[in-house]
Design a protein around this nucleic acid. Sequence first.
DNA 1: TGCTCAATTTGACACCGTGTCAAGTTGACA
DNA 2: TGTCAACTTGACACGGTGTCAAATTGAGCA
Lengths: 199, 199
Amino acid sequence: MSSAEKNTRTRILDAAWTLLETNLGEPVRMSDIAREAGISRQALYLHFPTRAELLVETTLHIDEVKNMESRLTPSRSARSGEERLTAFVDAWGNYIPEIHGVGRALMAMQETDAEARSAWQGRMEAVRHGCAAVVRDLSRDGGLKPELDEGRATDLLWTLLSVRNWEHLVRDCGWSQTAYLETMQALARAALVKTAATD
Amino acid sequence: MSSAEKNTRTRILDAAWTLLETNLGEPVRMSDIAREAGISRQALYLHFPTRAELLVETTLHIDEVKNMESRLTPSRSARSGEERLTAFVDAWGNYIPEIHGVGRALMAMQETDAEARSAWQGRMEAVRHGCAAVVRDLSRDGGLKPELDEGRATDLLWTLLSVRNWEHLVRDCGWSQTAYLETMQALARAALVKTAATD
DNA sequence: TGCTCAATTTGACACCGTGTCAAGTTGACA
DNA sequence: TGTCAACTTGACACGGTGTCAAATTGAGCA
């Protein structure tokens, strides 16, 4: 609990995150993390009971995840509900590639999955709340499609954001992140907004 | 090359698939596959050089994957382009849960990923062609949104089908497969069809 | 200066899963 | 009866995780 303890711990987490982000494809070993953190492999177990827990902690520790809610809060400049929707989808589209390593970390633990998932469920709830807030604004503005209630609209948006194949599209289909963002925007507007604006 | 060889080989693939489908969460070991197939662990290596290749072969071997194209061909009863779109999305939504084990198999090989992916890329191209065909029909019928060209529309549909969080929605958000299907349908219609029909 | 205590290191080891190897067994077929 | 390929058996190397016990380091304190 001393500051030294805390420093070593965070040094480990930072090291793990660096490797998850960088060494794309290669599995991240405990010995790798130890070397990156500048300590011995066994010392890792003084701070984390198992590799899986270390990786979960890593994903929860990085700034991008800790600041998830603020990252996904659209700028104050968005006045109308539709603008707010656009800003929200944009924020999400820019956010996803930044936390690429998180997916790898979660993937690295098939059977500890349940544990990792429950740790992540709360975070994801925050995103869903964001969807609900955006839909509420859109509804207040009268911009929401008349045939949708807010719950259904929230579901649609939430589902849309769960398109996880960004990587696939970019890698295998030659998409750019811009194309991805535009597609998200087009889908979101088409699904939710009464009079969808054309490009 | 004898029929005996073929039988053993397919027995192995069937065994692997059974385990991938059944033992949810648990990793599938070579010894498990051998036991399930009723042969010795070492004999697996007489048919497949490595575990990763065995798993890739397994995913490509199952009927649901071999018949992917026909499975995703909407019934002849669909007359209009819009009906055909609906049928296509429905077919996809019903198909995905059936090949659940495939995701696990592909996941089970992080670094062989590149190999597995290229083996799967061709299959996925078939789905994309399906999207293009549906969009073409819709366009011919005059049901496609005027602001979309066929390429863009195909991209939208293709992206939509890539929503991979079906499991997540069902498990963590209490969705039913029906809710998933409805959402897909709503998104597809909203994104592509000129005058989206309401429920 | 020397004591203490916690964090850390070092080296060794058990366990498990993959992949390999060599020698033996089985059974179909000529 | 002999041959050949498929398969079995038992042994083993390798690499990764997790554990343990015995040093070592170093900061705070008498």
